[in-house]
Structures are given as structure tokens and as C-alpha cells.
Amino acid sequence: MATFQPLFWALFTMVVGVFGCVAYFWVSNMLLDRAFPARGAQAGRNILRANAIRPWLFLFPAIAILGVYLIYPVINSAWLSLHGSRGQEFVGLDNWRWMVGDDKFLESMVNNLLWLFVVPALATLFGLIAAAVTDRIRWGNLAKSLIFMPMAISFIGASVIWKFVYDYRGEGQEQIGILNAIVVGLGGEPQAWITIPFWNSFFLMLILVWIQTGFAMVILSAALRGIPEETIEAAVLDGATPLQVFWKIKVPQIWGTIAVVWTTITILVLKVFDIVLAMTNGQWGSQVLANLMFDWMFRGADFGRASAVAMVIMLLVTPIMIWNIRNARAEG
């Protein structure tokens, strides 16, 4: 019974939650229709009034939750970043000043910038190549599924998978990690890949590239198929090789989509946390902002500093946010 209690509660709450949501929408609509009946002497005015209120009935739960769970935290984090470790006393810009002089923070900034450049670039490039080749082969759908599959795997699961790839045994022992086995097979010396300062970050980045390539491939493949045939035919008639057609005719026509893929992965990279936590926990010079924030929140128990680090991540995302909003408004 003890085992199934949470499951029971989950079912119970699910039913209550779903029923509660439905009931809210149902009852509030009914009340509105009662208050402003669409008949009688004032029918016209009542309909107008009901129509003015109804959107807000529909929107209320969403606005309330967005307000509490996303808007309030942004404001509160900004406020906390100016306060001490428990958020009590005002310390001005102390946390920010500490941050600028902190070695781990600087290391995280440098690593994050590397991640920001390498992961979107490689994932987009591999995604583009994967899209181009899988669109032209008979078993393309199967190939796409297999390359896309890591998307379904959790970062932590992916970390376990790749830790096994990077596994290291002392020299002379049988290598069970495939990377070291290949290196030894080629006559090299086995390496403990994830403990080599600076380069280890790249081995961690590879994990995210592995996960995100499928995403890039799916989006870019749709874009490539949307290119008008005439442009390609014209180029082929002019004697362009398949490679030239791809890089000079097709790719320039999907720059917009490439930008969307790039920015989407960029946002994800800024939040990357699980991989670093699982693989190195920020040791050997591989720290990143999201994990540094987590570190200060739990191990450091300093909400002020943790909030200041979180604000930095927010500031880095802001240009993309503004760009997205402007695009969305331009579309209507």
C-alpha cells in the first residue's frame, strides 16, 4: 500500500486538478451568462459586456501562473542579487563586485562563451549535413529517426552513455571505453579525457551536440524541402556540382531557418547544467554558469550570489528574447 500511495495521490490530484480546471471554466462561464443574459430589454448591452469579460475568464489561470512562476521570479531575482546570502540585508552591488573578481565565475564565463560558440555551430553544421544526406537516400526516414533519437534521452542519461565512451583505465589495462580503445589501437596512450583542463569542456560539449543535432536536422530538412525547385534546376543546367548546389544555392535560401535553429540551441546552451553536474561537477576547469549558480544556491547556500549569477544568464538571453518578440510582432 505504501508503494502505491503516491501513485494514488497522483491519480487523485490529477482528477481533482483536471476536474477543477474544467469546473472553473464551466462555472465561471455559466455565471457570466446568468449575470448578463443575452435576451430581454438589455440583450445588446449584456452581450457586449459579457464579451468584454469572457476573455479574461479564459486567460485568468494562465496569467496568474505565468505571473507567479515566471514574472515575479525575474523581478525577485534582480532584487535578491542586491542582497545578502539569505536575502535579508541590502548589500548594493557587492555580489556583482564579488562575481567580477571570482576565478570560478570568470572560468564559467569563458567556458560558457566557448559552449555558446561551439555547440550551436557544430549541431547546426552536423544537422545541415544530416538533413542533406538523409533527404537523398531511400532509408532516409530510418536514418533520421536514429539521429533524432538522442533528443528523447535525458541529459543525465546521455551523460552516463558518454561517460562510458570516455572511460579510462590505466595504461596496460584493457580499455573498455571505446574512445580510449581506438586511441590505444592506433598506438596512442589512453587519456582520462574529462579531467584534462580546457579540453575536457569540448568533450562535454560533444554530448550536447550529439543530443541537438537531430533537432537541427529535422528543422533544416523541412526548410530544405521547401526550397523552390526552379532555383536548383537552373543551377544544375549551368553545370553546378551537387556540392556547389548545396552550399551556394540551397544554404543561402534557408539562412532564416538556420538562424532560428542557432538561437534555439543557444538558449539551451546557456541553461546547460545536468551534463556538467554529472560529468565533472565543474572540476578540472569545466565550470559553467548554470552549474555555478546551482553550486552557490545549494552548497554555498548564498542566495545573493546565486541570484547574481542567474541574472547574468538572464542578461545573456535578453537579446534573443527581444529579437524573438520583434519577429513575433512583425508576423502579426
Binding site: 515566471l70 554558469l289 544556491m297 546565486a306
Partner: peptide, 24 residues
């Protein structure tokens, strides 16, 4: 305006929300 806000909130990093919400 609401639509713009939703689009903006799409990219708010989770890290922002952790401490305030944990306290709440």
C-alpha cells in the same frame, strides 16, 4: 501585448526562477 509577453517568457532561463520559487 499579452502575446508578446508569452513570446518573451519562452526564453526566460529556469535558473531565474529557482530561488524565488523555492522561497515562495
Amino acid at each position: 501585448l499579452l502575446i508578446a509577453v508569452v513570446v518573451g517568457l519562452l526564453v526566460v532561463p529556469l535558473q531565474m526562477a529557482l530561488i524565488p520559487l523555492l522561497k515562495l
